[in-house]
Each structure stands twice: as structure tokens, then as C-alpha cells.
């Protein structure tokens, strides 16, 4: 039973982190129907920025919750800047070109960022500091949920609530929904499409950065390559839930987290990465619109 609970908790936290990244994929796809291959790299850059920020701020004497929150904030800001720039350089000039061009450009961007971080920082794994402070009230249940897991869940829940509020109630959120529905109509109604797309990348990047900080806290080591694998899995989650659907991305991410965690626990850990890919292929074959997505009708 304890083993099961352990797997459950690790699946839940893993799924939460996937969810944070998957949201970026699903939002961008919803707005401009592009798989942003470079999104995993934004998450990885978030993790690296967090590592550097934590060391600098730590040596300045900051600690505890203040350190964790400011590190997360810095990572979010930097990732947002990267996300914005990526869209500006690699995607914006390609609006209205063939379908293949932005995809290839996106892959190019992903490769570029990966190697940029590898060259600027390190080709090896770097140790990530333990940023989560002691949480005293957790002591009685510590064997069921660790403080890191609690922080991951809290961060994720807050981000989801924040995102929902943003999309439902702000003017920009409304504009996003309008653009996702019908770009031409939204433009005619006076929505600035360029701004909406930029905002989508910025928000997706912020969420990915939080994911990066959290994965650092939980795995305690990061490398330039983490974005690729995590990106693939988060994308799987987004497809699983129905790409373009925000609640779908969260549900898909949780399912994937559990599937991986239980597969590693009960089947074999060496094939745990294969699980995600196999789920992806099966989903795409049998229900390409995902769990919560809608079947698309072709526009002719």
C-alpha cells in the first residue's frame, strides 16, 4: 500500500510539472496551430536561470521562502523574454507561409537553444540546490507527502487558478479566446493579433519556467537536455487531453504522470520513457482529437 501511495504521489507531482509545460503547447497550438518545438527549451532555460539566480541570491544572503519565490520570479521573467524573442525571430516572419516552414523553423530554434545552453553553461548535469524550506506542519504526514511535493502541487494549483482567472476575466484573455476561435473575425473586431500571439508565448513561457524551477527542486539536478524529453512528454500530455484545450492539457498531464510512475514501479523503469511515446502514438491513432478536444472539420 505504501509503495502504491509513493507511486501515486510521484505520479501526481510529475503530472503537475508536465501540466505546467503542456499548457504552453496547448495555448500556442490553440492560437496559431503550431507545435512550438522550442517550448521544452524555454522550460530548460527557466531551470538554468533559476539555478544561477539561486546561487547569486543565496550568496547575497537570501534564504527560505523569499529565496524560492524570487528565484521563481526571475526564472519566469527570463523565460518569458526568451519565449517572446523566439516567437519574434522564428515564427512571426513565417506567418502565411507553407505549413512545413514554421515546423522546421521551430525545430531549428529548439536545437539552437539546446546547444546555446550547452556551450554557455555545461554539457553535464549540474546540481540544483534544495530551495524548498522546511515545512513544520508537514511532519506528521511526511512519509506520505514530501515538502517538495507539496510545493509542486501548490505552485501548480495557484498557476492553474491564475491562468483560469486570466483567460476568463481579463481583456487579453478574452482576446485570446477570440483569436483561438476565429482569427479573421477577431481581427475584424479590432483585436491586435500580434499582441495576442506574443502574450500567449509569454504566458506559456512563464508557466514552463515555473515547471523548470520545480523540476530542479524535485530532481536536484538539471542539464541542457532536460527540455527535449520533458517537452516531448508535455506535448504528449497536451495531445492526450486534446490539443488546444486548457483543462485537457492538465488532465492529460496527470494521466501521463500516473501512467509513467506506475509503469516504472510495476513494470520496468528502463522502459518508463517509452510509455509516454507509446501512449502518444496510440492516442493519435485512435482518438487524435484527444480526451477533451473536439474533432476538427476541415475548412475548404
Amino acid at each position: 500500500m505504501n509503495f502504491f501511495l509513493d507511486l501515486f504521489m510521484s505520479g501526481l507531482t510529475k503530472g503537475s510539472i508536465y501540466a505546467l509545460i503542456a499548457l504552453g503547447y496547448t495555448m500556442v497550438y490553440g492560437i496559431i496551430a503550431l507545435i512550438n518545438f522550442a517550448h521544452g527549451e524555454i522550460y530548460m532555460i527557466g531551470a538554468f536561470t533559476a539555478l544561477l539566480a539561486s546561487m547569486v541570491l543565496g550568496s547575497l544572503g537570501l534564504s527560505g521562502w523569499g529565496l524560492l519565490l524570487s528565484v521563481a520570479a526571475i526564472a519566469a521573467v527570463y523565460s518569458a523574454m526568451y519565449g517572446w524573442t523566439v516567437e519574434r525571430v522564428a515564427y512571426k516572419p513565417l506567418r502565411g507561409s507553407s505549413r512545413l516552414a514554421p515546423l522546421i523553423s521551430a525545430i531549428g530554434m529548439s536545437i539552437f537553444l539546446q546547444n546555446y545552453v550547452q556551450l554557455a553553461q555545461s554539457p553535464n548535469f549540474l546540481v540544483f540546490p534544495d530551495l524548498v524550506p522546511q515545512i513544520d506542519f508537514l511532519a506528521p504526514v511526511a512519509r506520505y507527502i514530501s515538502r517538495t511535493q507539496l510545493v509542486i502541487l501548490l505552485f501548480t494549483v495557484f498557476s492553474m487558478v491564475g491562468l483560469t482567472v486570466f483567460i476568463k476575466f481579463t481583456k487579453m484573455g478574452m482576446a485570446m479566446r477570440a483569436v483561438a476561435q476565429d482569427q479573421t473575425m477577431a481581427r475584424l473586431a479590432g483585436v491586435n493579433i500580434d499582441k495576442v500571439i506574443s502574450a500567449t508565448f509569454v504566458i506559456g513561457s512563464i508557466l514552463a519556467a515555473l515547471g523548470g524551477v520545480l523540476i530542479g527542486c524535485s530532481m536536484r539536478q538539471i542539464s541542457f537536455y532536460i527540455g527535449f524529453i520533458a517537452g516531448m512528454k508535455a506535448f504528449t500530455a497536451a495531445v492526450l487531453g486534446g490539443i488546444g484545450s486548457i483543462p485537457g492539457a492538465v488532465v492529460g498531464a496527470l494521466i501521463l504522470g500516473f501512467a509513467e510512475s506506475f509503469a516504472a514501479g510495476y513494470v520496468s523503469s528502463s522502459y518508463k520513457d517509452v510509455v509516454a511515446f507509446i501512449i502518444l502514438i496510440i492516442i493519435l491513432i485512435f482518438r487524435p482529437e484527444g480526451i477533451m478536444g473536439q474533432a476538427q472539420t476541415q475548412k475548404v
Partner: peptide, 20 residues
């Protein structure tokens, strides 16, 4: 050689933008 993949990545973006 260490910059090879970096250059490939940049090339893919540049080619798509300017000379698809």
C-alpha cells in the same frame, strides 16, 4: 565542431525565413 549543432539550428531558422 562544438558549434556545429548550434549553427545547424540557426541555419534551419534562417533558411525557412529567407530562402525556404
Amino acid at each position: 565542431s562544438q558549434y556545429r549543432m548550434l549553427i545547424f539550428g540557426a541555419l534551419m531558422v534562417l533558411m525557412m525565413v529567407f530562402r525556404p
